[in-house]
Amino acid sequence: MVHSRKIEPPLFEQLIISNEEISPGVHVISFQRDFEFLPGQVVKIGVDSEHPPRIYSICSGNQENEVFILFNIKEDGFLTPKMGAMIPGDKLLVSKPYGSFVGGDEPAWWIATGTGIAPFYSMVRSGSPENKKLIHGVAYLNQFYFEDELEWALGENYVRCCSRESSCSVIPGRVTKYLTEIDRLPDIKYYICGKPLMVVEVRDLLIERGVSFENILAEIYF
Rank of each mutant, 00 (worst) to 15 (best):
P196H: 08
R125I: 04
S30T: 14
T113A: 12
G103E: 13
K82W: 02
P129W: 03
A139K: 11
E151A: 10
P107E: 00
P107Q: 00
N215F: 03
L150D: 07
S18V: 04
K133Y: 04
F120Y: 14
I182M: 08
E130L: 13
E219S: 11
W109C: 09
G104V: 06
D105V: 05
Y98E: 13
L205R: 02
I207C: 07
C168H: 08
H27E: 06
I188L: 01
R164N: 08
I135L: 12
V124G: 14
L179T: 08
V28I: 15
K132S: 06
D187L: 02
Y98F: 15
L154T: 04
P88Y: 01
F101P: 15
L70K: 02
R184G: 05
L141A: 06
Y190K: 11
G103S: 15
C193S: 15
F120V: 12
Y56P: 13
S100K: 15
V47K: 02
G114R: 01
D204V: 10
L79C: 15
G210M: 09
F31N: 00
E50N: 14
C59A: 07
E156L: 11
Y140L: 05
N215M: 06
N19M: 01
P9F: 07
Y140R: 08
L38N: 13
I7H: 13
H136Y: 10
A112F: 09
K189A: 11
S167V: 05
Y121D: 09
A118Y: 09
I188E: 02
V47R: 04
L134A: 01
V211A: 01
R164W: 05
Q32K: 10
N72H: 07
S23E: 06
Y145L: 08
N72V: 07
V26L: 12
